[in-house]
Computed example of a mutant assay.
Amino acid sequence: MTTTTAAWTANDRDRSWSSPDQDDAALDFHRSLAGYEPTALTPLPELARELGVAAVFAKDESTRLGMPAFKALGASWAVHRALESAQAGTDAEVVTATDGNHGRAVARFAREAGRPARIFVPAGGIHPSAVAAIRGEGAEVVELEANYDQTVTAAADYAAANGGVLVQDTAWEGYEEVPGWIVDGYSTLFREIDAQLREAGRHAPDLVCVPTGVGSLLQAGLAHYRRASAGGDTAVVSVETEAAACMGPSLEAGHPVTVETGQTIMSGLNCGTPSSLAWPLIRNGLDAAVTVSDAAAIDAAHRLADLGVAAGPCGAASLAGAREALTGADAETHRRHLRVDADSVVVLTITEGSEANPVPDA
């Protein structure tokens, strides 16, 4: 059963359901890369007081493998696996569509593998600095007058027609292996959180807020926290832009729903269709879906900057979502549903730095 208000959809998940255990292949691969080190898990006691919990930590992805976003984790592992598995020639292009940081990360690791990259983007859908950063990785950028879902289709069609190696971070029927590798790559982030909390003398998080586009990072978080060995006690909340909020409607419908997308500063979250690969974990493992406005994300970004965390709007959506869930309308009901109280530990996944997507003035 789901319960929905304007910005909140609660999912009464089956707490006996668990996801399979994971192997160490992606983590071991990341540890082998030059420049790998865990990103910071920054304590924010001021936010803990504001949110009425024991501790808040920001998992700051602004320096991930020399790039300003978590996407480097999934792209590095998936490009490696896709090129290893592909029957394409050594000069075959690596192809993807992006509405943010995924395209730059794919371009970077294609270049490091000695392959050309072709990145499709929705024209006007991402910040010009992000487009410039993709070109700066040596990739060919194709701008289309289309929304994100249409751009993904165009990239897939191009790769199929031209012998390219498609490395896309959303799944559909018949295309699930590569998105699965991307999700496996993202698991490193959550494994680092566990180790860092133990080092800080803290237990596993009681709540993790995950900015969500198609749901690949969300899938990685759910796969991690819903393992039988994890106990299943961590509440996981997806945070979407209200301009492209498909998780709540999908939970209500009981199946993936495509919604019309609009304009938003949270370009990396401007996706109208859940990944088919992510959906079973979302349906069975997600606690709630929250939507936030551009204004809320910008305000959260400025608050994080005041505390020394330089988050872009997508990354700051995590704080905006936590605020909505824990201090907004019906907060007491939301807190009971999430089992969050004054003794809880909250982790905000700050998925991008402000370098990746500049934050306008409040």
Rank of each mutant, 00 (worst) to 15 (best):
M1Y: 07
T2F: 14
T3A: 12
A6M: 13
N11V: 10
D12K: 11
R13S: 12
D14L: 09
R15W: 06
D21R: 04
D23Q: 03
R31F: 01
E37P: 04
P38Y: 10
L41E: 09
L41Q: 10
L41N: 01
T42H: 14
L47S: 07
A48K: 04
A48C: 05
R49W: 03
A54V: 13
F57K: 02
K59S: 01
D60C: 09
P68H: 00
A78C: 00
V79Y: 05
V79I: 11
R81K: 14
A82T: 06
A97T: 09
D99K: 00
G100A: 13
N101G: 03
G103A: 04
A105N: 11
R108A: 05
F109K: 07
F109V: 09
A110H: 12
P116K: 03
A117D: 01
A117R: 09
I119R: 02
F120R: 03
V121E: 09
G125P: 07
A132N: 06
A146D: 12
N147L: 00
T151Y: 04
V152K: 10
T153Q: 13
A156Q: 10
G163M: 12
V165L: 07
T170C: 03
Y175K: 08
E176M: 13
V183C: 12
D184W: 13
G185F: 07
L197Y: 10
A200I: 12
R202I: 00
R202V: 04
R202H: 15
P205S: 00
L218K: 11
A220V: 05
R227W: 02
A228L: 15
A228W: 02
S229H: 06
T234H: 05
E240L: 05
T241M: 01
T241N: 04
A243E: 04
E252V: 15
A253E: 03
P256I: 03
V257L: 10
V259D: 07
E260V: 05
Q263T: 08
T264Y: 00
N270C: 11
N270A: 10
A278F: 01
A278K: 07
I282R: 04
N284M: 08
L286F: 11
A289C: 14
V290C: 15
T291E: 14
V292K: 01
D294Y: 06
D299F: 03
L304T: 00
L307S: 11
L307W: 00
G308K: 12
A311D: 13
A316R: 03
S318H: 06
A320N: 11
A320S: 12
A325P: 10
T327Q: 14
D330A: 12
A331G: 06
R336K: 13
V346T: 00
V347L: 13
I350Q: 13
E352R: 00
E352N: 09
S354Q: 07
E355C: 08
N357I: 01
V359S: 14
V359C: 15
D361V: 15
A362Q: 11
